[in-house]
Design a protein around this nucleic acid. Structure first.
Lengths: 218, 218
DNA sequence: TCAAGAAATGAACCATGGTTCACGCCCCCC
DNA sequence: GGGGGGCGTGAACCATGGTTCATTTCTTGA
């Protein structure tokens, strides 16, 4: 025996792994998963193509990691708001505004996570991500129905509608022009959230009330 | 000069073209665009692979044709309802129920048209399709707002929300189990349409009224 | 310093699936 | 019926992009 991994080395390995993940994530948030070609990731991370395969068994696994890292961060944010002890309607407004607001800010990334064409394996990961969204929405709705804050409805279906409406109205061919989104994102987010709230039977607050609630979100 | 295309020949050519298109469309509605590989289309149509290229300059063009044929049929259906002279709210209900109803019935095809990963060129075609949908919705909404049947809102954004909510709630990972959709499609369609109507400020009709309107849709 | 083994390398490899093309056949007109 | 095409064929070709692996370059303990 003449070689055993020392701390210094394993730290360097961890660094390399990290820099590969970072490179991949950057590429994804710039140009979607399509831009994250193995050789390009390697170039960015400053390693050889083959090196990627010492850290990830396949491109698919690398992409999956990226997906998990990014999406779990987003979901954590929403889950925290959702599990607060405020009234359901308040939590609902905050969650929707946060979801929409973050999608606007990180449009390219949101596109990659929610809408970009990906292959079957990544699609699974995405399905999980979206289902978690829907579950967060639907749990709040159920709370609200139980508490009499919201009218009775099929919460799962309403949640799916919300999870479809918000990204569609913000990303992709039905979204407003990108420049308009940058110019006045709040107005557009307001409008979309208003649609969803009305959809689940929340009477619209007037503009002044809206402004107050707005402060409470990311 | 010793050859000029005769009627018999051009009829045969048209037939072949048609059978290629049919084969491709069948494959798409069975397994999405992914299943429509050139060699497979050729096999189904009973011609050689190379023959496809005597009728279509590329696979992309073939797919585009399929897309147009199928989607223009769907859009025509909606456009007809939309341009009727009934009150905006009635037209809206009919259009939404038709859109949702057809998506449920032809789920695989709807998936291919609306959600399946496709490459950039087909994505353009899809964008057109979806924009047309949104335009149909938004025109009705504008009519309704103008007539005082609907509250003021940004019709374009609301239309995008609708165009996102309905497919998301019916197709893909957030849709109910396929067997549940088959068991009682109407109930689910009702629920989704109710969400969208509420979203644009239409007070919910009670169940009896709904049943009457239901008869009026495809 | 040296041997043993891990880590890194990147050019070659391979799988997939669209596209081409040299050839044979059929159709038209003289 | 013969010649000048267009039409049909399908095996070969090619482009893309992920994956491998023989080789080289560290690292480590003796």
């Amino acid at each position: 025996m003449a070689y055993r991994q020392t701390d210094k080395v394993s730290a360097r390995l961890a660094d390399t792994r990290r820099s590969i993940l970072d490179a991949a994530r950057d590429l994804v948030s710039e140009g979607g998963f399509a831009a994250a070609q193995v050789s390009e990731v390697a170039r960015r991370a400053g390693v050889a193509t083959g090196t990627i395969y010492r850290y990830f068994s396949s491109k698919e696994e690398l992409c999956r990691q990226i997906f998990r890292e990014v999406s779990s961060q987003e979901m954590g944010l929403l889950a925290t708001i959702a599990s607060g002890d405020e009234p359901a309607r308040t939590r609902l407004v905050k969650v929707l505004r946060t979801f929409a607001g973050r999608a606007v800010k990180g449009r390219r990334l949101a596109y990659a996570l929610l809408a970009e064409p990906v292959d079957a394996n990544l699609a699974e990961e995405r399905a999980f991500f979206r289902r978690t969204h829907a579950e967060i929405f639907s749990r709040i709705l159920e709370d609200g129905i139980e508490a009499g804050e919201l009218p009775p409805m099929n919460a799962k279906i309403a949640a799916a509608c919300i999870a479809g409406a918000i990204p569609t109205a913000l990303i992709g061919p039905l979204a407003p022009q990108s420049q308009d989104l940058d110019k006045d994102p709040e107005r557009i987010v307001d409008e979309i959230v208003a649609f969803c709230l009305a959809g689940v039977g929340v009477a619209q607050p007037d503009r002044k009330a809206r402004k107050i609630e707005r402060r409470a979100t990311v």
